[in-house]
Amino acid sequence: MPKVDIALSLYCELISRILCLNCFQKLRIATMTKTLAEIGLLMMINPEIKNDDLHLPPDGLPCYRILTGKDDAKFCHRVSEALSLGYQLYGSPAATFNGQDVIVAQAIIWPEAQ
């Protein structure tokens, strides 16, 4: 596996663990520190590696996101915008009712993270 793919995989795994509320409590500081150190070491060993080479999402966006909101055109536009940036749908959408509005959620993932 190329070094760039390893760095991207480590970065996306770290972000996914941080964003997952159930996993957050299980995430140890040592694991996070080790992962960040490995990414930093890889970039120090290969200074020619840039963000563009790692195929990261634009504008510093995370590799894994959950979009939530009222089930309306605005939410649909947010999902469409993420897809046009290059994200892919991840899993099925979810819906619930808060007593006033239908609230929907859709997970998206950057394709390089899979």
Rank of each mutant, 00 (worst) to 15 (best):
K26T: 05
L19C: 00
W110R: 09
L27C: 01
E112A: 15
L42G: 13
D101S: 10
G91I: 11
D71S: 13
V79A: 09
L8Q: 04
K50G: 05
D59K: 14
R17A: 01
A105W: 01
K34Y: 04
Y87T: 06
K26N: 06
L19T: 04
A37D: 03
D71R: 13
Y90Q: 14
Y64I: 04
I39C: 02
P2C: 04
T96L: 11
L56S: 03
T96K: 15
L14N: 02
N98M: 06
L56T: 12
D72I: 15
L61G: 05
C76F: 07
N46K: 10
G86C: 09
Q88T: 14
L42T: 10
A107E: 06
A113I: 04
L83V: 07
D53N: 14
I45S: 07
Q25T: 11
G69Q: 02
H55L: 10
E13A: 13
D52I: 13
I18L: 09
I103S: 02
G99N: 10
I29K: 15
E81H: 13
A113C: 14
P47V: 04
L54S: 08
Q25D: 01
V102I: 15
G60D: 05
S84Y: 09
P62V: 09
G91T: 10
N98Y: 06
G60Y: 12
M43L: 15
A37C: 11
G60M: 09
P47D: 01
K74W: 03
N51I: 11
D53L: 11
I18E: 07
A30F: 00
L21A: 14
C12F: 03
G99V: 10
C76K: 15
E48F: 04
T31N: 06
P58I: 04
L41T: 10
S9L: 01
V104T: 11
Q114P: 01
E13Y: 00
M32S: 13
I18K: 14
M32G: 06
K50L: 07
H77W: 10
E112C: 13
A107H: 11
M44N: 08
I103W: 01
A105H: 03
Y64L: 11
L61T: 04
S9P: 00
E38K: 15
A7P: 04
G60S: 12
N51G: 06
L56F: 12
M44Y: 12
I109D: 00
C20Y: 02
E13N: 14
P57A: 13
G69F: 05
R65F: 01
Y11E: 00
G99L: 06
